[in-house]
Amino acid sequence: MALLEIEDLSVTFPTSSGPFRAVEGVDLAVDQGEFLGVVGESGSGKSVTMLALMGLLPPQATIEAKRLVFEGRDLRKISSHDRRRIVGREIAMIFQEPMSSLNPCFTVGFQIREALGKQGLDRAARRRRAVELLDEVGIPAPEERLSAFPHQLSGGMSQRVMIAMMLAGGPRLLVADEPTTALDVTIQAQILDLLRRLQRDKGMALILITHDMAVVAETAERVLVMYAGQPVEEQAARGLFARPRHPYAEALLEALPERGFGKRRLPTIPGVVPGALDRPKSCVFHPRCRYAQDDCRTVRPPFAPLHGDPNVRVRCFHPRNEDARVAEEAR
């Protein structure tokens, strides 16, 4: 049984020019101990999806879903009291800006002990546990760091402290929203290694949200690609990078400088991501798609298994790289 199941999730915000669907038709499942990457450009709805799961959206947002189940418990039906027992403990989240996620007025030790608060530990035990947690996320001299304030820490150290706080509740699922985007590349490598190690050692499921294809290629087992509020492709990481099936995923990979090596001009995706109110009713990508045909302009394709294979799902009538031999040669 999957740890987390989301089916047909949509999020709507009221705006002065009418309701805006930030996210629609999100289907996703995460197994225990699995590493799922969610990639998309800004405005693709990847963060809103996860904030909806965490119950962190503002009250005016309307969240609808056919299924929203964590470990067999229906998150749509439980009371907010019960939800709080799950969120923050069994499901934890870390964010992009570690510097602004920590409270600048309190020491690191205070904030970690606070996260440990409800576990029935006495003062001394909480302190011991806080030192253990800091040690576990690779902070040197953890005893001394307890009395440090957030401004005395670098970005990488702050993110480690955030991860330690998240581990305090012993989560089954960690949602990491662009955890390394604000960090330097050598520090990014350290934090990604840390996340991978924790996921492996603790059997924790991990959802990594990022705009960076390389970060996903480096870490995730399975990848969900989102565009304009909808998932457009989902498959194993190796499959996606070798043989993308949705034209958007294909174009995104071609636009990377790593893949355009040897060419002077990089391939680009013409046009821009549609704005809040001009998303097409049919396929959302068709105005920018080289392969669009008449059916793409009239009907929205379903997010469906490709050729009956449940491990590859694509929202496209005309998937790319159908010929596996051609795909192999292109590699």
Binding site: V185, T186, Q188, A189, Q190, L192, D193, D212, M213, A214, V215, A217, E218, A220, A237, R238, F241, A242, L253, L256, E258, R259
Partner: peptide, 16 residues
Amino acid sequence: AATPAVDPSARKERAT
């Protein structure tokens, strides 16, 4: 080494 490659089959330790 720290720069991730866009290729899941080329994963390796990057924090050197």
